[in-house]
Design a protein around this nucleic acid. Structure first.
Lengths: 222, 222
DNA sequence: ACTTTTCTTAAAAAATCTTAAAAAGATTCA
DNA sequence: TGAATCTTTTTAAGATTTTTTAAGAAAAGT
């Protein structure tokens, strides 16, 4: 999602942009009305967040112009609390929502999401191999819950089954290459996973290759 | 829509009422401050239009009293043009809008409509999952009132049940990650919600995924 | 047979979760 | 205004689960 944010207070803008980015909202920020209007007319945003007090061209004027041009992008107006006339004029002019300053970023995010009707999306990360289904979001293996480290390990193995994963690579990936020399971490968790595979009576197993590493295979294969 | 109109100039009032009625706005008119205040406190209007110069009790006093009583009905103040002090005082006291006399009825109608227009966010937001019904407008869960933080949390969970919500995400969403590092807030409120779910004897429960977050599930599921 | 590597497990340590309850802050009502 | 009540924030003491550690058993290679 991409929004246009027209705001002249630099510090506020930076803070807000940072938080919006964290919520997967890309922000184009401009600090004066003229540039803002130009972008609003030219580009295709999912939403426009518009401060009312702006240099060169007021938020109300921008709103009026884009609505005159039949651009229906949702607009959220911002203004200092108490500037009642602005609020009224904004809504009359076709703003979709209004937020008084100061506001919580969380509320702005909620309103942007509400206006854009974007269901908070989460990529489904589900992998299968043989009779195994690993759900990386829920950290379950055929429904059975895994701990985080177990899940980390299973995710690597099942993403590339039938392929050897070096112990050092697994270690680096899961424990972060903090100069840990303890291969035993990996061995312990491989052991835990094997136990769970046995419990599930899976046809899949973890094969170890001495001196090399591990790979996920189906029992009949070698 | 029904409004209260407090105005001592009979001729003006009659003209205005006539025009408002034409726009489907029902008007209760009183001509003195005391009666006006009484009605404002007792009845439930969509909006109050309040002249400042009134016999017995001034508009400002009325406004102050009803705001002290936490009545949030939108108020539009009227006063002779140029009485800037009145305007300022009115807005300070919590008026939502201000109109100088003489005014055009059309403008008053526009402002009444603007103030009473429900922001698009408040469209009925009712979510259900299992035997739960959460009303995000009233912030009730199966009729039981939730506090605002509880409601924030429940709203996220029930919007996407059976899906893991990371603790950091919940924190960011509800507390607006303002440098708060206390994950414990989320834990505390999860605990409150669980207690209420128990009280409701709901078949829905909040499952925690250690190190990940929480999700709403039906008891039989895993 | 001997060395090295890997496997398994128990239990210690650390991290995380759950609750209760105190403290602080708001709101309501007389 | 001030007492009473409700809500939110903070703190903290267990529970519970996960991770780490460590040591002996098993397997593989030479």
């Amino acid at each position: 999602m991409r929004i246009l944010y027209i705001e002249d207070e630099k510090l506020l803008a930076e803070a807000v942009i940072h938080l919006l980015n964290k919520s997967d909202i890309m922000v184009d920020w401009v600090s004066d009305g003229e540039t803002g209007l130009e972008l609003a007319l030219k580009s295709n945003y999912d939403c426009i967040v518009l401060d009312i007090m702006l240099p060169k061209l007021s938020g109300i004027d921008i709103l009026k112009t884009i609505r005159d041009r039949r651009i229906k992008t949702p607009v959220i107006m911002l203004s200092a609390l108490g500037e009642v006339d602005d609020k009224v004029r904004g809504l009359e002019q076709g703003a979709d929502d209004y937020l008084g300053k100061p506001f919580k970023a969380a509320e702005l995010i909620a309103r942007i999401n509400a206006l854009c009707r974007r269901p908070p999306l989460q990529a489904t990360k589900i992998y299968t191999f043989g009779d195994l289904t690993f759900d990386a979001n829920n950290r379950t293996l055929n429904g059975q819950a895994l701990t985080s480290k177990e899940a980390d390990l299973m995710e690597i193995l099942i993403k590339n089954p039938n392929q050897v994963h070096k112990k050092s690579a697994l270690l680096a990936y899961i424990w972060g290459n903090e100069a840990i020399t303890e291969d035993n971490y990996v061995e312990v968790y491989i052991s835990y996973l094997r136990k769970k595979l046995r419990e599930l009576k899976s046809s899949v197993q973890i094969k170890s290759l001495r001196g090399l590493g591990y790979k996920l295979i189906e029992k009949q294969n070698v």
